Computed example of a mutant assay.
Amino acid sequence: MSNSADHESRKTAEARTTIWFDGACPICTREIAIMRKLDRRNRVRFVDVAEDGADCPIDRAELLARFHAEEDGELLSGAAAFAAMWRAIPILRPLGLAARNRGMLAILERLYNRFLKIRPRLHAMIGAFNKRKSGGSDRPQTRRET
């Protein structure tokens, strides 16, 4: 490998962003699936914290409670973590750069905190919908007489 190619390889590896997400959360898994498709350059390393043996830099419960990312060696959470992920994905990079503005990041953080309050209800609703869609149901089935 030439020095130039070696330098580019190291540069890409160093610039990689790590995302920790809750793989047991249907909302999270859908969002991460979209991010993986958009991450055509493989700049983001996604770690499912719900899996046994997942590489966790802090307490697993903390990682499951809030979205976390590591960018340039710095551990971020909440809106700042989303912004780091966006910066690593070229098509979303402008959003991530805009979030470097303190005012913009504060607005995104408030929105994220509101989302966290309704996340359990959304999680339950999506889980029930998926269960019904796959043929299962939380409610007892009744037969109609014809």
Rank of each mutant, 00 (worst) to 15 (best):
E51I: 09
E51G: 06
D52Q: 09
G53V: 06
A54L: 00
A54I: 02
A54C: 10
A54M: 04
D55P: 07
C56A: 11
C56R: 10
C56G: 04
P57W: 03
I58S: 04
I58G: 09
D59E: 13
R60H: 06
R60I: 07
E62Y: 01
E62H: 12
E62S: 15
E62K: 11
L64C: 04
R66L: 07
R66D: 09
E70T: 15
E70I: 13
E71C: 12
E71A: 15
E71Y: 08
D72N: 14
D72L: 11
G73W: 03
S77Y: 06
S77L: 03
A79Q: 00
A79N: 05
A79G: 02
A80N: 07
F82P: 00
A84W: 04
M85Q: 09
M85A: 14
M85I: 15
M85D: 00
W86M: 10
A88W: 01
I89V: 15
I89P: 14
I89S: 02
I89M: 02
P90L: 04
P90S: 11
I91A: 03
I91M: 07
R93P: 12
R93C: 12
P94E: 01
G96H: 04
L97P: 00
L97Q: 03
L97K: 13
L97F: 10
A98Q: 01
G103Y: 00
L105V: 10
A106Q: 11
I107H: 01
I107L: 14
I107K: 06
L108Q: 02
L108Y: 10
R110I: 13
Y112A: 15
Y112M: 08
Y112R: 02
N113H: 07
R114C: 09
F115T: 11
F115P: 03
F115M: 13
L116R: 14
L116C: 13
K117G: 02
K117Y: 03
I118Y: 03
I118R: 10
R121C: 00
L122W: 06
L122K: 00
L122R: 01
L122C: 08
L122S: 01
